[in-house]
Amino acid sequence: MKCFLAVVVLGVVLLGVNSKLSSPKVEVYSRNPGKYGVPNTLICHVSGFHPPDISITLLQDGVEIPDPKQSDLAFEQSWQFHLTKTVPFTPVDGKSYTCKVRHMQTVKTYTWEPDM
């Protein structure tokens, strides 16, 4: 009975939430100025999206970079969400570093640019 009541309450809350679709704003950057051959952290920060059906993948030359860390999904009072994914990397000249974001059925790729 408690489980059923919890589901009903959750449903009522979700119906009351402004469920307007909001596309994510994406920022791809490095923790320190991007220089080839210098260890750094690749960061992809995604914000302002709703609903929270999203995934973030960090890639080097189209291949997922192993062992990324992801923040907890968080939201603002407006019910727009934000999420950050990071991974250590050492930029190499000639390689591309990207953040692939899937929100609902839309997939877009964003490229990191070194500070050269």
Results as ranks from 00 to 15, higher is better:
residue 59 L to R: 00
residue 29 Y to V: 10
residue 12 V to H: 07
residue 12 V to S: 06
residue 81 F to K: 07
residue 87 V to W: 05
residue 3 C to Q: 13
residue 77 Q to A: 14
residue 23 S to L: 15
residue 109 T to Q: 06
residue 41 T to Q: 12
residue 54 I to P: 03
residue 62 G to A: 01
residue 100 K to S: 14
residue 83 L to P: 11
residue 43 I to C: 15
residue 106 T to V: 14
residue 29 Y to P: 01
residue 96 S to Q: 14
residue 78 S to W: 02
residue 53 D to S: 12
residue 47 S to G: 08
residue 49 F to K: 02
residue 63 V to H: 04
residue 74 A to P: 04
residue 86 T to V: 15
residue 59 L to M: 03
residue 20 K to S: 11
residue 106 T to I: 10
residue 23 S to R: 13
residue 105 Q to P: 04
residue 44 C to R: 06
residue 71 S to K: 06
residue 108 K to A: 04
residue 95 K to D: 15
residue 112 W to T: 02
residue 20 K to I: 04
residue 16 G to M: 01
residue 24 P to Y: 00
residue 68 P to C: 02
residue 60 Q to E: 03
residue 2 K to G: 14
residue 84 T to V: 13
residue 76 E to K: 13
residue 13 V to L: 12
residue 100 K to E: 14
residue 64 E to A: 10
residue 112 W to P: 02
residue 76 E to H: 12
residue 15 L to I: 06
residue 10 L to H: 01
residue 25 K to T: 13
residue 27 E to R: 15
residue 93 D to N: 14
residue 15 L to M: 05
residue 86 T to I: 13
residue 81 F to A: 09
residue 110 Y to A: 01
residue 96 S to T: 14
residue 3 C to P: 09
residue 55 S to H: 08
residue 99 C to V: 09
residue 10 L to R: 03
residue 57 T to Q: 10
residue 89 F to C: 12
residue 29 Y to W: 08
residue 97 Y to G: 03
residue 116 M to C: 12
residue 42 L to E: 01
residue 77 Q to D: 10
residue 19 S to N: 12
residue 51 P to F: 00
residue 34 G to V: 01
residue 35 K to E: 14
residue 57 T to G: 02
residue 48 G to Y: 06
residue 62 G to R: 00
residue 100 K to F: 03
residue 76 E to W: 09
residue 47 S to D: 11
residue 44 C to S: 09
residue 113 E to C: 05
residue 101 V to T: 01
residue 88 P to R: 10
